[in-house]
Deep mutational scan, measured.
Amino acid sequence: MSIQHFRVALIPFFAAFCLPVFAHPETLVKVKDAEDQLGARVGYIELDLNSGKILESFRPEERFPMMSTFKVLLCGAVLSRVDAGQEQLGRRIHYSQNDLVEYSPVTEKHLTDGMTVRELCSAAITMSDNTAANLLLTTIGGPKELTAFLHNMGDHVTRLDRWEPELNEAIPNDERDTTMPAAMATTLRKLLTGELLTLASRQQLIDWMEADKVAGPLLRSALPAGWFIADKSGAGERGSRGIIAALGPDGKPSRIVVIYTTGSQATMDERNRQIAEIGASLIKHW
């Protein structure tokens, strides 16, 4: 067993022997301040990774656009098919120029040779490549099948209805392509620590998230040296922004954090800054 596999296998073990965790309302004060600064709703939840206990939450059962955070769930569904012998990570998928959609920095470079399922998941999570996500959605049967996968996990809230990039439209009061912070946090925890996926697939999923290259201005910008984070960000229309993450000190994750916002007129930089400040408060009061 590799060191990384050992780390993920012992996530519940280490967490069980940690000192009790206590909620700190100071972080919620910052979440509410972010709402004021952005002029928009902000949803927040913080779960203990081992027990699933909610440590703090704000608007945990209000719907927010998922945006690209759905790509972690998508690759979880792909990995479940791999575990069941219905898919192979090494299978190569070929596609054409007509398949390319807006923001496809990886797939646009491989029109000639195609990409493997493993490479597509890596591109979808680490670079948020939209064509990679659409190609992977095709392998599982489309958005409705991802929703069905989530329902089978016990998540009857999260739903995907459309493809990239239309799913980022974020129309107010439109339930399409949305989740709730509580539902997303619980589902992410199941994917990373539950028995739904094999140990190898859980490790692969967290490795992809740990290698995320496009979430630097968010929670990662607030992390002290030595902290662990595996995350996936999302951005959408109407001032929408979000991030889902597993993080913790001492090089291992111990909490799940989900943050979503929508309806702001603020710039992307300002949305990023507010999420980073929430992260800084979380870490300060850990």
Rank of each mutant, 00 (worst) to 15 (best):
Q86F: 10
M153H: 10
S240I: 01
K252R: 13
P60G: 15
A276F: 12
E145G: 15
G52W: 05
E26L: 14
R202I: 07
S122A: 12
L223H: 03
N173H: 12
A123K: 02
L79W: 01
A16E: 05
T261S: 10
G154F: 04
S51C: 05
R162E: 05
D99N: 09
S122R: 12
E195R: 12
V29W: 15
D48V: 05
N173W: 15
L188G: 04
E166A: 11
D161L: 03
L137V: 08
I283N: 03
A225R: 13
L219E: 03
T178V: 05
T178L: 02
F14C: 09
K53Q: 12
T139Y: 07
L49A: 09
V31N: 02
G76T: 07
S57W: 11
I243L: 11
T158H: 01
M209T: 02
S240C: 08
I256C: 06
M115E: 03
N134W: 02
P12V: 12
P217D: 12
P20T: 07
N152T: 14
P25N: 09
A182G: 13
N98Y: 14
H94L: 13
G226S: 11
P165R: 07
W163F: 15
D174T: 05
K232Q: 00
W163P: 10
G242Y: 00
L247I: 11
L146C: 05
S80C: 09
G85H: 12
C75Y: 00
V29N: 15
T27K: 04
G248K: 02
Y260N: 01
S51L: 05
T262C: 10
I244F: 03
G52C: 04
D129W: 00
A170N: 09
H5G: 07
S264C: 07
I54A: 10
Y44A: 02
S240E: 09
L218K: 02
T186A: 14
I244N: 02
E119N: 08
A235D: 02
V8F: 15
G234F: 01
L135G: 02
A211S: 13
E175H: 14
R59H: 09
E169I: 10
L218C: 05
D174W: 02
R81K: 14
L120N: 02
K32S: 12
R59N: 09
A246P: 00
G76P: 00
H110I: 05
N130V: 01
R176W: 07
C75P: 01
R92H: 10
A182M: 15
R92M: 10
I283Q: 07
V8A: 11
D99T: 09
D129V: 00
L205W: 03
T27G: 03
S80G: 11
L192W: 08
V106W: 07
R59V: 01
S104K: 02
L192Y: 07
L247Y: 03
E56Y: 05
E87S: 06
G194M: 08
T178A: 05
V72Y: 01
P20D: 15
P172K: 10
S122G: 12
R91T: 08
R189G: 12
D83S: 06
N134G: 03
E87W: 05
S201H: 15
G85M: 08
H5Q: 12
S51Y: 08
V117S: 03
L136M: 07
S128Y: 00
T186W: 15
D113W: 07
H94P: 09
M115K: 03
I140F: 06
G239Y: 02
D231I: 04
R159G: 04
E46G: 05
T27M: 06
P217Q: 13
M180W: 11
D113S: 11
S2C: 08
V21D: 05
T193Y: 15
D36I: 14
R92N: 09
R273D: 10
P249V: 06
A77S: 10
V21I: 07
P253G: 09
A123I: 04
L10Y: 09
H110V: 05
T198L: 10
S254E: 13
P181Y: 00
G114C: 04
S122T: 09
N50W: 10
I244P: 00
D113G: 11
D212G: 07
R238I: 08
E166F: 14
V257D: 00
P249K: 13
C18Y: 06
Q4S: 13
F228Y: 13
G90H: 12
I256K: 00
T267K: 12
Q88T: 13
G234P: 00
D269Y: 13
A183Q: 12
L160H: 06
R189N: 11
G85N: 11
I3R: 08
T139E: 15
R189M: 10
F64L: 02
W163V: 13
D113F: 07
R92P: 08
L79V: 06
K144Y: 13
K232N: 01
I171A: 15
Q37Y: 15
E26K: 12
A182L: 15
R162C: 06
K53G: 11
T147P: 03
V78T: 07
E195C: 08
R273T: 12
T116G: 04
Q37A: 15
V258F: 02
L79I: 05
D155C: 02
M1W: 01
E270L: 10
D177L: 01
S254F: 08
F17L: 09
G194Y: 08
P249L: 06
D207N: 11
R189C: 12
M66K: 00
L47R: 03
V157A: 12
M184Q: 04
L146E: 02
Y44C: 03
L38Q: 06
L167H: 03
A23V: 05
W208T: 03
I275N: 01
D155R: 00
M115W: 02
E46D: 07
M209K: 00
M66H: 05
T178Q: 03
I283S: 06
A148K: 14
E108P: 07
H151V: 12
V78H: 03
G90A: 13
Q4F: 10
E164M: 00
A182N: 09
V257M: 05
L150A: 09
K213L: 13
I125Y: 00
I11E: 03
G251M: 10
K53V: 13
L192I: 15
S233K: 01
H94E: 11
A9M: 14
P25C: 09
V257Q: 01
G194S: 14
N173E: 14
T261W: 04
K32N: 10
R81I: 06
D177Y: 01
F228S: 07
K109P: 07
R238C: 14
T131F: 05
H5A: 08
G234M: 05
P143M: 04
E169H: 11
G279K: 00
W163N: 11
M268R: 07
G90E: 15
G251F: 08
D212C: 04
R189Q: 15
L38F: 08
I140E: 04
L135H: 04
G194K: 09
Y95L: 08
R159H: 12
E87F: 08
T112S: 14
T138K: 15
T27N: 05
T112W: 15
K284M: 10
L197Y: 05
R7Q: 14
I140Q: 06
I283P: 02
L199C: 15
I140C: 06
M184L: 07
R273A: 13
E26A: 13
K109G: 14
L38C: 07
T138C: 12
G226P: 07
I244M: 08
Y95V: 08
E119W: 02
L136T: 04
E145L: 09
K71Y: 00
H24P: 06
D48K: 04
G239T: 02
T267M: 11
R255G: 02
L219W: 04
D250V: 10
R118L: 12
T186L: 15
P217C: 07
S68H: 00
P65H: 04
V31S: 03
M180V: 14
T262A: 08
I283G: 04
S96Y: 11
S80N: 12
K53E: 12
F6V: 11
T131W: 02
E277T: 13
I3Y: 13
L73R: 00
S254K: 14
